[in-house]
Nucleic acid binder design. Sequence first.
DNA 1: GTCTATAAACTGATAGAC
DNA 2: GTCTATCAGTTTATAGAC
Lengths: 204, 204
Amino acid sequence: MSEAARPAETLDSSVRQRLLRAASDLFAQKGYAATTVREIVAAVGVTKPVLYYYFGSKEGLYLELMQSTSQSFLKLLDEPVPAGATASQRIKRLGELAFQVFCEHLQTMKIMHAIYYGPPQGAPFVDFDALHQRFQDEVLRLVQEGMAGGEFRVGDAEVMTWALLGAEHLAMQFELCMPERRMGLEGLRRATDLVLEGISTAKA
Amino acid sequence: MSEAARPAETLDSSVRQRLLRAASDLFAQKGYAATTVREIVAAVGVTKPVLYYYFGSKEGLYLELMQSTSQSFLKLLDEPVPAGATASQRIKRLGELAFQVFCEHLQTMKIMHAIYYGPPQGAPFVDFDALHQRFQDEVLRLVQEGMAGGEFRVGDAEVMTWALLGAEHLAMQFELCMPERRMGLEGLRRATDLVLEGISTAKA
DNA sequence: GTCTATAAACTGATAGAC
DNA sequence: GTCTATCAGTTTATAGAC
């Protein structure tokens, strides 16, 4: 509708976007249950019906946050890879893109982690495991591909996947909880390279 | 007093221990804030004053759980290593012991993660970062030791540490959230070996 | 001291005017 | 699209009986 016709700048500062932003900040800081609809709308400077107009409910707003972030990750899996890329390059590319999406949605990732590791807080169920599994499967597939193509040493592809995902998860956790000592994209690259060198047939 | 003189079996099933166990189960399942003192004592079959006698408060009980688990981890850092052990062997040993402690205190670790990643829930502050940092520092030290001794390739010891810790963290996260697909101690060993082989000068 | 009954406050959510 | 006004359900606090 008219919303789609707006320039991008207007969209980013739209009430809808500002509500999403305020909610993600508050949910991340205080938790889903402890954050009230009143606080969210007050932070944006609008009234409650505006929130219900856009999202139907507090749960709807939460789900919008979760699903939009999940979609950003899932999109990475369907993106076309550069022609002629090696398995190593594809693994690195996927890992880096996922890390960037993670950083762009840092507040939402904080909420996800809090719900995932902690009590549900009354928030509607979201299948975080499935998302994680999709990614793990894709990395496993890429490792098996590289192994079949002679790029990686013959071995247990699952163990190699664990080593690769471990670096990824650690980089994400640092970003979330210890930003002052974070690995950053560059640290993730170097740790991933280290693992990839270890499983590669070619010697650096 | 008399408590110290009791045989170990009696200690494990003492009211104090049963309170700790019940509290860790409830905190892990429902969160610290949502768990009432009433529920804890009801689960053990005692009255509230019993809890206040042993721990002073709900906070005191919580801190006892956190500190006893933290101590189990910190003890690993001070334990004497087998004479003549290589850096690889020391790293593997530390990682495996830490993983075992993690599994033994699984419920408490669940609480730690919930507090660490989520809202404080009114729980008293515990410096989880410091504990994590102590471990990371120790692994880094061992990597540097191995590098100085020619056991590991010359490179960025911090990056190597990240790769090693990544596998450890992933194994712990699986144990916590996806026990049905867990790496287990054996998976951790193999992933750690993979990384260690990659940074070793000796070829397997 | 402990329990129950009730009141006050706050929650997510809605109706209807503009 | 946004507002004012208000809903019903829940939690929280407290007063008062036991």
